[in-house]
Design a protein around this nucleic acid. Structure first.
Length: 842
RNA sequence: GCGAAAGUGGCGGAAUUUGGUAGACGCGCUGGACUUAGAAUCCAGUGAGAGCUGAUCUCGUAGGGGUUCAAAUCCCCUCUUUCGCACCA
């Protein structure tokens, strides 16, 4: 017989919902605990990845509820975005319709798994009562000088028909559709995330984040110390700024390398004939996609511009080349090339016969320019460097930079790899940027009282490659808020990562229609105590959200420095070794599993299969194993044959969390052992969750516990009511009563049911978390392992009070020990208390 | 190429925090009970090898070396895998 999971799960979901136990209370006197999982994109139905993610969050959340915290676990939908728009184009529908449908489906599924979510705080980013505040925040950011518009080369995805931020390009491909990204010159809105680069490098205010994520963000921001140098052009007043981390090699600079995108290059090209070599070269390079262009094995190419710059330290003429290996978006977008001491410059100079000049000599002083086959990039001693000759290169770096600062030809500088965040998207299904362009007044922000700028519902999607909002003239054409003259609205929408950069704060006050959220409430709930989500957002969402949070702090919306105190990056759900995905055809529908085995089974499987941060390999058979386990637990309480047995538990179990045994009567060994196991289990489960957040081992211990021989022996062969005294009966009853309470975090429905079956009126979490009593963990006998020269030769059971001397004696008396010690001299005996005896003999 | 993490039965994983009985727990597999049969359930076994069933012994945590009475755990080298970064000046 299978236990009636379907009835049980519905029943408790209804009770929870009626009692509103998951509705978090603002400013409760209890300590707050904010558990948050990354909200889903409403793509249709929940997939296994969601189930895994939310099962982890729910386990933590319910455990914290048992511990008496005022827990908030909200949920919402990251509901703007391209897939909905693309789906609407293909199916001649509207994203609003499909998104709402999908949300309905997912909402039902959330309820059918029984996650403890506070639906009073639900947010959906595509609703104007949410994105209104995104627009409001955009304006505050603009006022603070953190938003600007500029024309530049940006990442363009032909398939998505939109721009992508740098973080959203992986290996030169679109993070969403893997189309190769190409560079396109466009006017774009940017968020000045670089203003916060330094603070984003500082993780001292988070409590517990995986090192991996911190490292990834740190590398992404890419801070490096160096020198900026200013090269004058030979025939004009223009100056080229370069950034270098090797100012010690400046005297060896023989050419300058510029990317075709460099502003000076564009300027020069204006005077070039239509089919000049240099123009052809620039066009060719700029049309290459980012991967081929930046791949390490791409051949370095370039063309001499015929122009010269002057080396600021010695006025030497330096050739200016346009090349394919310099990037416009790092440093100053120009490189002083020192072929002798940089392998890229070396390769290039050899290929084009550009002079090479040795300025760093190795410590052995045996470098000969003519014999060099590769650049010498190590530190060394300066040569051919005027007054700096003889200096060690590390020391000379500061000396040269200081001297250049005096000469006003350069300065110390810090460069970041991080670029400003391009947030304009040339698509419809996103937050409208609250900007109006007036013929008279220029760029005007939409006044706060006119927010939200609502997305028009009627729109032409996907018919042209132009921005869809341009197809709604009655929306685009408006009047200027300042002069009331004719004006046009901005038709780009915001990157959806903007929407997800502050939603965690909105949950604190999700229904506010005056401001994004009340500061008091935000300060009560934030930071998120435990954030859970996939590692794929390490440098996208997780960095943007930190940036937004710091910005919100700086305009006085929140007081905390970081949005997420603890971060858990959960693994993927895989099948046949690969991530579940529709394209690979290896998906398993959670709903089918829930219908067949119940939500508790799916949760147990997910949490038991591996620790949360590791991947979970889906296994149909192992799911049945989880189901079998829950059936066994249920049967333990079911008591079909003997009603007295369940009555006995009801009558005698301890409602106190301490599980102290009240009576003074003697208890038999069997029962004492059982009590030991009960308290040991409490300890183990609590430690696994509290110290390590490892649910797999906690569940394993519960399995082990219910498999105990003691259980079946007591259960099947004895009549406890007449056989045991009252103390023993209490211990016996407690042994059962503890099970639902320890299982609750992982399988809440069955736990509530069992808890009720033994006569409880309270819900499990209301009773609190069980505590173990260390006194009951003291054993009557301790088993020592006896080793001789590190090999196990016997075991020894002694009373805990036995002295070390006695233990040694007893160990030496063991038959097997005697056998191995025969003819040997004992050098030393080591006794590790409560564990082992190690005999050193020769 | 640089950086990080990890390598344990047929599989997922435990023991690594604190050096102290390696393989908990689950899946799978083998045998048995129940059944007309199956499913389900229950019982027993399950790292490799030797040994008469036994007691017991040998080997065994990617490979090699080291520290130690004792190493999956600490140190060094090698290999492999995964992840991140990668013409960043």
């Amino acid at each position: 017989m299978e236990y009636p999971f379907d009835i049980i799960e519905k029943k408790w979901q209804n009770i929870w919902s009626k009692k509103k136990i998951f509705n978090a209370i603002d400013f409760s006197k209890k300590a707050k605990y904010y558990v948050l999982s990354m909200f889903p994109y409403p793509s249709g139905a929940l997939h296994m990845g969601h189930v895994s993610n939310y099962s982890i969050a729910d386990a933590i959340s319910r455990y914290k509820m048992m511990q008496g915290f005022n827990v908030m676990q909200p949920m919402g939908y990251d509901s703007f975005g391209l897939p909905a728009e693309n789906f609407a184009i293909e199916n001649n529908s509207h994203p609003r319709i499909t998104t709402d449908e999908n949300i309905k489906i997912m909402r039902n599924q959330f309820d059918s798994i029984g996650f403890g979510l506070d639906w009073e705080r639900e947010v959906s980013t595509c609703h104007s009562d949410y994105y209104r505040w995104g627009q409001w925040l955009f304006k505050r950011m603009y006022e603070k000088g953190l938003v600007y518009k500029k024309t530049s080369f940006v990442n363009w995805c032909d398939s998505c028909q939109t721009v992508l931020a740098n973080e959203q390009v992986e290996d030169g491909k679109c993070w969403r559709c893997e189309t190769v990204v190409r560079q396109k010159e466009l006017e774009q809105w940017f968020f000045k995330i670089t203003d916060y680069a330094e603070e984003l490098l500082d993780f001292s205010k988070v409590i517990d984040w995986p090192e991996r994520v911190k490292t990834m963000q740190t590398n992404w921001i890419g801070k490096s110390f160096g020198t900026e140098m200013w090269f004058k052009l030979q025939d004009s007043d223009d100056i080229i700024k370069v950034f270098t981390t090797r100012p010690d090699t400046i005297f060896g600079c023989t050419f300058m390398a510029l990317p075709p995108e460099h502003p000076l290059v564009s300027q020069w090209l204006k005077n070039e004939p239509e089919n000049s070599e240099i123009r052809k070269f620039c066009d060719k390079v700029m049309n290459e996609d980012k991967i081929t262009r930046t791949a390490e094995d791409t051949t370095k190419e370039g063309i001499f511009t015929g122009r010269y710059a002057l080396n600021p330290v010695n006025e030497e003429k330096v050739q200016i080349w346009v090349t394919n290996y310099v990037l416009m978006d790092y440093g100053t977008g120009a490189v002083m090339a020192v072929p002798a001491h940089d392998h890229r410059d070396f390769e290039f100079a050899k290929k084009y016969n550009i002079p090479i000049k040795l300025v760093i000599q190795n410590p052995e002083k045996n470098l000969v320019l003519e014999e060099m086959t590769e650049a010498y990039i190590e530190p060394g001693i300066l040569v051919n460097s005027a007054q700096f000759d003889g200096m060690v290169s590390i020391a000379s770096q500061d000396a040269i930079t200081d001297w250049m600062t005096q000469q006003e030809t350069g300065k110390h500088t810090i460069t970041y790899r991080l670029r400003d965040w391009g947030i304009s998207r040339q698509r419809y299904w996103g937050t409208p940027i609250p900007v109006i362009y007036c013929e008279n007044c220029g760029t005007v922000l939409v006044p706060d009282e006119d927010l939200p700028v609502k997305l028009p519902e009627k729109v032409q999607l996907g018919k042209t490659t132009q921005n869809p909002l341009l197809s709604v003239p009655e929306w685009v054409n408006t009047t200027c808020p300042k002069c009331e003259g004719p004006a046009r609205r901005e038709t780009d929408t915001m990157d959806t990562f903007v929407d997800s950069s502050w939603y965690f704060a909105r949950y604190a006050d999700a229904k506010n229609d005056k401001i994004p959220f009340d500061k008091e409430k935000a300060d009560y709930w934030l930071p998120v105590d435990q954030y859970i989500g996939g590692i794929e957002h390490a440098v996208m969402h997780l960095m943007y959200a930190r940036f937004f949070h710091k910005f919100m702090r700086d305009i006085g919306l929140v007081s905390s420095d970081e949005p997420f105190a603890r971060l858990l990056t959960q693994g993927m759900v895989t099948k046949d070794g690969a991530k579940m995905s529709k394209s690979k055809g290896n998906t398993v529908d959670p709903q089918y599993i829930i219908d067949r085995f119940g939500a508790d089974t799916v949760r147990i499987f997910m949490l038991f299969a591996s620790p949360p941060e590791k991947d979970v390999e889906w296994n149909d058979e192992a799911v049945k194993g989880a189901f079998r386990f829950l059936n066994r637990v249920y049967r333990l309480f079911e008591d079909e044959d003997n009603k007295n047995y369940l009555e006995l538990i009801k009558k005698y179990y301890n409602t106190s969390n301490k599980f102290n045994t009240v009576g003074k009567e003697d208890i038999c060994i069997l029962i004492k052992e059982l009590r030991y196991n009960t308290h040991n289990l409490i300890k183990k489960v609590r430690e696994d969750i509290e110290n390590r957040v490892h649910f797999n081992t906690a569940i394993a211990s519960i399995m082990e516990y219910i498999n105990l021989k003691d259980f079946s022996r007591i259960y099947w062969t004895l009549d406890p009511e007449s056989f045991y005294n009252n103390t023993e009966k209490t211990i016996y009853a407690d042994a059962f009563a503890v099970i639902p309470r320890l299982l609750y975090s992982f399988a809440p429905h069955i736990s509530e049911e069992l808890w009720e079956m033994i006569g409880n009126k309270e819900l499990v979490h209301e009773t609190g978390i069980p505590e173990y009593n260390p006194e009951y963990l003291v054993k009557d006998e301790i088993t020592y392992v006896v080793q001789i020269m590190g090999k196990i030769r016997g075991k020894l059971s002694v009373a805990p009070s036995t002295s070390e001397e006695e233990i040694k004696e007893k160990a030496l008396e063991l038959e097997n020990v005697k056998k191995y010690l025969h003819g040997k001299e004992i050098k030393k005996i080591i006794v590790v208390p409560n564990k082992l005896v190690s005999i050193v003999a020769k």
